[in-house]
Design a protein around this nucleic acid. Structure first.
Lengths: 198, 198
DNA sequence: GCGAACCTATCGATCGATCGTTCGGGGGTC
DNA sequence: GACCCCCGAACGATCGATCGATAGGTTCGC
């Protein structure tokens, strides 16, 4: 049997981060042992603790980085989108899908392993989550207020749009022939119908 | 301190099943120990093993029962729905929402702990899952074929509708003043807009 | 009617394995 | 020799699972 990984000297930190990401994605936080992670990285347990504070920190770093990127993408997309509610809705749909696809693994971990964060970490990141949720809510509310969206229940429309976009990460295959721009176009159309944009 | 649970003699099986459901929901499969479950049920570890084969069986029974109920609900709803695609769509939305709300905890476990089923169990239940998914797909496809639905991408529309309905379990509060019939009405309208039913 | 035998539902104690984490050391490079 | 990167060995705790024992109930022979 050939040696499994052959980590280049000094590349330990990134190898462990990647191994943690893959392991958490496959078996979940509690289903993954740090020995799984170290073995997958081709390193020893001690190397893991040389680069990281422990298992919880590995998860927190993953989720934090991913969550911050999502909020940043949303923020930028809205800043460039101008004033039209339909355009702003499309921008948020695009930001969400691009995030969910380009960070397919991390975003899924962030969603499903949220409850396994230490309370302190979770609380801090909850603020970011709430802020991102508010971007959606304000957007839909304003579209309704300005008579562009005609849905009767903005909260439910918002939740439906977000759920539809988020679910993409569960089935999308990057090499499956369906490109991201096409995906964004389809889901923008769906989102516009959900909020009843006419 | 008063004794915690006082399980009536003979009520051990149900007490353990309920405790397992609550524990799995709160901390996930791997995050829950059988000692957690037994303690919550107010019984000993031995009592748990008297009534159940083990931890995996507790999860499997939970997921299996819940998945079968979902498929049964969908099947019945479609059987009573007649021929009109819009009515059939509403029936499936109603069945999904009623299932997701009445079995809020179990259905969430079934969705999130799926990967922790033994391969044999998962494979068997996958057939049921695929069958339920096919009910949705056939329904949307037929609506499009008959010119009732006008969405350009039936698969994406189907996934959006299902995702929106399923997400309800993540935020719905049974005592929150929003009744299930009203919920069904709102999401039927959303679903009809998603498939572009005119 | 009354023990003996048996069944049911539970218990405490314990098994080997694995968990997350820590520690002391050692090879490599400057 | 100082520093960086990594290792094997070991810690106590907890894991899922199994064991033999026992208190109460039912059945049965006589």
């Amino acid at each position: 049997m050939t040696s499994p990984a052959a980590v280049p000297r000094g590349g330990g930190r990134e190898a462990i981060t990647r191994a943690a990401r893959e392991s958490f994605a496959e078996r979940g936080y509690h289903g993954t042992s740090i020995r799984d992670i170290a073995a997958r990285a081709g390193l020893s347990l001690s190397a893991l603790y040389h680069w990281h504070a422990g298992k919880q920190e590995l998860l927190t770093a993953l989720v934090e980085e991913s969550t911050e990127e999502y909020f940043r993408r949303c923020d930028e997309a809205l800043r460039d989108a101008g004033d039209d509610p339909a355009a702003r809705l499309g921008a948020l749909v695009r930001a969400t899908i691009e995030y969910r696809v380009s960070r397919q693994v991390e975003s899924t971990i962030a969603a499903s392993e949220w409850r396994n964060l230490d309370p302190a970490n979770r609380e801090r990141l909850d603020a970011l989550r709430a802020a991102a949720s508010k971007l959606w809510a304000d957007l839909v509310d304003e579209g309704v207020a300005r008579g562009v969206f005609h849905c009767e229940h903005p909260d439910d429309a918002r939740r439906a749009v977000v759920a539809a976009c988020n679910a993409i990460a569960q089935w999308y295959e990057p090499d499956g022939g369906l490109g991201v721009p096409e995906l964004v176009e389809r889901y923008t159309a769906i989102a516009q119908r959900i909020v009843d944009c006419r």
